[in-house]
Computed example of a mutant assay.
Amino acid sequence: MAGGRLRRRFKDDDLTDMPDHALVGVVRIPSMQESPGRAISKRVIYALIALFAAVFIVYLDRDGYRDVQDNELSFLDCLYYATVSLSTTGYGDITPYTPSARLINVLVITPLRVMFLIVLVGTTLEVLTERSRQALKIQRWRSKVRNHTVVIGYGTKGKTAVKAMIADGQKPSEIVVVDGDQTVLDNAAAKGLVTVRGDATRSDVLRLAGAQHASAIVVATNRDDTAVLATLTARELAPKAKIVASIREAENTHLIRQSGADSVVVSSETAGRLLGLATSTPTVVQVIEDLLTPDEGFAIAERDIEPEEVGGSPRHLPEIVLGVVRDGKLHRVDDSKVDAIENGDRLLYVRQGLPD
């Protein structure tokens, strides 16, 4: 029964089958947008310019107009006529009767009327245009997205993970955030990240985020059971992706690893160790925090070896080498297996500042 439900979950691809225009509001491709207050102010200014331009033109040619009482038009009459004309109300109590006044109405007042109406309905047009633009962006993005990073959950852990990745040189446009809270997704989009709204334990939501083409997937949910199911779903879709998951309790480590996580971070134990160290050796905690902050001070990094380093000892390099990654496995620098550097090795070392 459980296997059947799981198979139905993976076959539920409703979102990925939807047309791109229907995904507007689910997927959001970030773009630089004008603030609402500034946009409204500009529209009001344009409308007032059109209105007073019409008032000025009518006032200059006021002798060509007459009202129902054949009185000469005052400035207030001109303002009244321009207002009802541009708003297409047109009571007919003031009309142009000379050929020149009628010609000016055709050549000037009518275009101003059109401009005024465009300004009035501009918000609606802008919304429709924005939806079309977003649909086109989604279509292009879905066809090109490859080797990106999917971050599941944009709480404290997710935000910190994204910040670290960006500080380490990854482009915000190459990071896709999946979360069910629209408020946190708005915050992510404001930082230039692609966002997908939905439940990351559903395969169709992760397909929409391009998880099947991702090079890495970060699981940073607030609940361990959600993290396990999201990891299982992600591993089914992306067998070759590197999956890094965070859990709160160490007793769930074996579950998350069985679900397909390559690396597991136990947040409660890590925080507990730092708290314990801070009581006796607070400077050690400062150094650890410095190493975990890639955009300032020292940082832990990984690099390929240089050709001239083959055969040498990792302990004799200029950098402080912490370990050697060989065949996908990390060896500490004091391990006899890595006394000599070999082709294909990668070095885990301490670097200073951002990479060039």
Rank of each mutant, 00 (worst) to 15 (best):
residue 200 A to H: 03
residue 190 A to E: 14
residue 227 A to L: 04
residue 211 A to R: 03
residue 223 R to M: 05
residue 205 V to M: 02
residue 268 S to G: 01
residue 265 V to A: 11
residue 254 H to G: 01
residue 244 V to T: 12
residue 183 T to M: 08
residue 181 D to Y: 06
residue 249 E to P: 00
residue 301 A to L: 10
residue 279 T to L: 15
residue 279 T to W: 03
residue 310 V to Q: 03
residue 224 D to V: 07
residue 202 R to H: 11
residue 278 A to T: 02
residue 208 L to D: 03
residue 247 I to C: 06
residue 296 E to Q: 15
residue 233 T to H: 09
residue 223 R to H: 14
residue 227 A to V: 05
residue 241 A to R: 02
residue 186 D to G: 12
residue 293 T to S: 13
residue 250 A to T: 12
residue 254 H to D: 14
residue 205 V to G: 03
residue 200 A to R: 03
residue 306 E to K: 12
residue 310 V to N: 02
residue 185 L to I: 07
residue 216 A to R: 15
residue 186 D to C: 00
residue 244 V to G: 07
residue 263 S to Q: 11
residue 287 V to R: 13
residue 211 A to L: 05
residue 243 I to M: 11
residue 209 A to S: 11
residue 236 E to Y: 12
residue 260 G to H: 07
residue 276 G to K: 04
residue 290 D to A: 14
residue 307 P to S: 07
residue 279 T to H: 09
residue 298 F to S: 13
residue 237 L to T: 06
residue 259 S to Q: 06
residue 195 T to R: 04
residue 278 A to E: 13
residue 178 V to E: 02
residue 259 S to K: 01
residue 278 A to D: 14
residue 192 G to W: 10
residue 216 A to N: 14
residue 291 L to R: 04
residue 250 A to M: 11
residue 225 D to F: 09
residue 298 F to Y: 14
residue 236 E to D: 11
residue 293 T to Y: 08
residue 241 A to L: 09
residue 194 V to E: 00
residue 279 T to M: 13
residue 264 V to Y: 07
residue 291 L to W: 10
residue 289 E to K: 15
residue 291 L to N: 06
residue 181 D to R: 12
residue 254 H to I: 10
residue 257 R to N: 07
residue 286 Q to I: 00
residue 276 G to M: 14
residue 230 A to Y: 04
residue 270 T to E: 04
residue 285 V to H: 08
